[in-house]
């Protein structure tokens, strides 16, 4: 039972969605604009900025760095998050709320504090800055996210299935491989993809911890200062937005694969 139509509210919601989406739309729009001035009226259609982007070797270096950092940190975060989610969904134990809070903290505190904390420890230990500390920061930052996604997925997991497998003669490892893993695989992939997106887009940790290797957001940040270089960042931004949206939609779809209708959910409970 739901309320009937409310036209005023509906119009407001449409306006709000405009507020949410229109600003992002300007990036693709301007990326096809001729010339380097990002202002209306548009100067005419052109793909010159995309060609410009294609011919930036530094951009591709940064892209590979970002993909490397994203894959490694999200893979690690998904694994840590899976074990943690298993503990939270399967057992009741002392210090449960405290552990949950502790794992969530890196995501909840202001990011700059995490960034300088890692910077200070890294510099004082005397290790060179670069992709490694960035990866550690991203694992810290992505694990809470992946964990929330996996807990939502694993709350409905029937522990009897694991027991049934044990009962039918499989040990702990084969039970994981033949039962838990295939059933939870869509959720694990979703967690991995979303973790990857977070790491891929992350700027602040990367800015503080970067050595000579740039990630893509750092590269873009560097280009923003030069008006001439800006348009190809727009083109890059447009590509990133489209690609991210596709990956996120795939992840959303995977999150609900095989879930009964009433359990489908995209919300996060923190």
């Amino acid at each position: 039972m739901k309320l009937n139509e409310n036209r005023t509210l509906y119009i407001y919601v449409l306006i709000y969605f405009g507020f949410l989406y229109i600003p992002v739309m300007f990036l693709p729009i301007f990326s096809f604009n001729q010339g380097i001035h990002m202002a209306f009226p548009l100067q005419g259609f052109s793909t010159e900025h995309y060609e410009d982007m294609w011919n930036s070797p530094k951009l591709f270096d940064a892209l590979w760095n970002s993909i490397y950092v994203g894959v490694v940190s999200s893979l690690m975060a998904t694994m840590l998050a899976f074990f943690a989610a298993k503990a939270f969904t399967k057992y009741k134990f002392r210090g449960q709320a405290l552990s949950y809070g502790a794992i969530l903290t890196p995501f909840l505190i202001p990011e700059i504090i995490l960034a300088i904390a890692l910077l200070v420890i890294w510099v004082s230990v005397g290790l060179p800055l670069g992709l490694t500390p960035i990866i550690i920061g991203h694992v810290l930052f992505c694990t809470p996210f992946c964990m929330i996604i996996l807990i939502a997925r694993m709350e409905g997991f029937d522990n009897n299935l694991e027991e049934a497998s044990r009962d039918l003669g499989e040990g702990v490892f084969m039970t994981f491989w033949r039962v838990s893993f295939p059933i939870l695989l869509p959720g694990l992939i979703a967690a991995f993809l979303l973790g990857f997106i977070i790491s891929f887009d992350e700027f602040l940790l990367a800015m503080f911890l970067q050595g000579s290797d740039q990630t893509l957001p750092i590269y873009m940040w560097g280009q923003l200062r030069f008006a001439r270089r800006l348009p190809h960042v727009l083109a890059l931004g447009a590509v990133i937005i489209v690609a991210t949206s596709l990956v996120v939609m795939l992840a959303y779809w995977l999150r609900n694969v095989g879930q009964p209708q009433e359990k489908q959910d995209l919300t996060f409970k923190i």
């Binding site: 049934a164 009962d167 039962v179």
Partner: peptide
């Protein structure tokens, strides 16, 4: 451990593996 015992169980909720078909379920053990 349960996997080594000469017992088998029919669970209250049956615990049929949802990701494999009936035949594979029966062959599981």
């Amino acid at each position: 451990p349960p996997n080594l015992r000469p017992t088998n169980m029919v669970f209250q909720n049956y615990a049929i593996f949802p990701h494999i078909n009936v035949k594979k379920n029966i062959e599981f053990g």
